[in-house]
Design a protein around this nucleic acid. Structure first.
Lengths: 260, 260
DNA sequence: CGTCTAATTGAAGCATCTCAACATGCGTGG
DNA sequence: CCACGCATGTTGAGATGCTTCAATTAGACG
């Protein structure tokens, strides 16, 4: 798609104003966590939005912003993060195609964290008023989105447990299990392999470990024959072993049907 | 509403069947995070509930439960926690009078964590159907509860940052700042002092530190003249100093008016 | 008073960090 | 197309924050 190239042009390109793939990915992800009638799916398909392209390491929204639209990740990979005074960073969640990582902005004005891409990405923006109107007309859709934010909260809780209680080896394994499970759930994993555009430094920011220790721990995971990890792609060689290592129980993801 | 009786004496005590203080505390807490019209407050006051008393270290709900009512903490102090296979525990949030820590059960069947008291407590249970009906009739109330769960998610994110990035001294300071700020916001702190029914071992479970290290770190905080902590009561001697130590910025609590 | 839990202290060990160097891969300009 | 430059990955070694184990003290309560 896209007969264009530059930043400003994007907004002029009519055919993109309603990206079908963005809507479909959103629906696909919603279906992994709850039910959605055919007519409600059509409601969602009819929702107008605005496509935006971002390159690697760009913020979708930044801490302090007061967005007037939510973002649906159409393509790419993103993360939430917070920066401390001295520059340290903590990544608090990952997001893949189909995710809508700032639904919270519908009810909380000011962003308390940032949302940034980890590779070139496409985002579909849907105006707050559009969403509010949709929820008013279709309360079941609103309920499903509420459930979605509650599941996100569950994931945050699990991350607190992960960084609070598990040692480096398990902690990394757990993160890998989660990404793989979620990618599988929405159909973004090809067998045992999925895209994984994280540097070791970023893995350090998500686990609260130094880059050096991430490196050594990954070597241990590789050495134990659990994973292969290179060039933006993760392959799980021993799923059973990895889940045991990470004490991973996917219940906290509240998926409708658990993926093996 | 409830002219009935059930198993225990508690349920025979008429005046308690609708605890005014439970409803009032709920409203008071809601008002710290959003607006609520007089008529909506009355709607909430009219909501029927069931009072339950618990002693220290009892579960309000446990992981795996499928509650059919939400819980409002009327009196006491509680925490959310998760237990790992080998018995380690991570506390992921604290709850005080006025909190409704399991709103999530309205949209997520199965509890993915437990909710337990840290001292003798009183809980007001409101049936799910009652809440769903209320949200249907009064969507603004539903929106406020949604906002509440989103703020909780924000707190979880901050906890990830806290255990992921901060060293023991700051981490403990941050936890103390949060509890004090929230207690003040809902009127449960008397000047610089508030109730704080946590043992050092429990503080260890919340910060991911050993009891021994909690003890030594608390001594450091005391030695630096920041706090006094004894017998279930916390006094902040140097608020400025404590917030600096904990890198505490209350923005993530999204309170309507920030307390000094 | 005796009992039990919580708080405190000391000392040794380890997981992880920091510093610092070096290797590898990749995109870009020459 | 090669060479350079920069980001990422890798390795070694010393420093340290925190844990574990083990004991002792202090408080709360019947």
């Amino acid at each position: 798609m896209s007969s264009d190239d530059k930043t400003k042009l994007i907004h002029l390109v009519r055919p993109e104003v309603q990206s079908p793939s963005g809507h479909e990915r959103l629906i696909r992800t919603l279906l992994t966590i709850g039910e959605l009638s055919e007519s409600d799916q059509d409601e969602l398909r009819a929702v107008p939005g605005r496509i935006r392209r971002l390159s690697t390491y760009e913020d979708i929204v930044s801490e302090g912003d007061r967005p007037n639209a939510i973002s649906v990740l159409v393509d790419g990979f993103a993360c939430r993060y917070k920066i401390l005074h001295d520059g340290r960073r903590q990544i608090v969640s990952f997001h893949m195609a189909g995710d809508a990582p700032d639904i919270q902005s519908l009810y909380i004005d000011r962003m308390d964290h940032s949302l940034g891409t980890l590779e070139d990405s496409t985002v579909l923006h849907i105006a707050h008023e559009t969403m509010h109107d949709l929820f008013r007309r279709k309360p079941e859709i609103g309920a499903l989105f509420w459930r979605w934010t509650l599941i996100e909260a569950s994931v945050f809780r699990e991350w607190v447990v992960n960084v609070g209680q598990r040692e480096a080896y398990s902690r990394l394994a757990h993160v890998l299990c989660e990404v793989m499970t979620r990618m599988k759930a929405v159909g973004l994993a090809d067998g045992k392999t999925c895209q994984f555009p994280l540097t070791q430094s970023e893995l350090g920011d998500t686990t609260g470990m130094s880059t050096v220790h991430v490196n050594r721990t990954l070597q241990a995971l590789r050495g134990d024959g659990l994973i292969r990890l290179k060039a933006g792609s993760l392959t799980v060689l021993d799923w059973e072993g990895l889940t045991v290592a990470g004490e991973f129980d996917p219940a906290y993801l509240h998926l409708r049907e658990l993926v093996a």
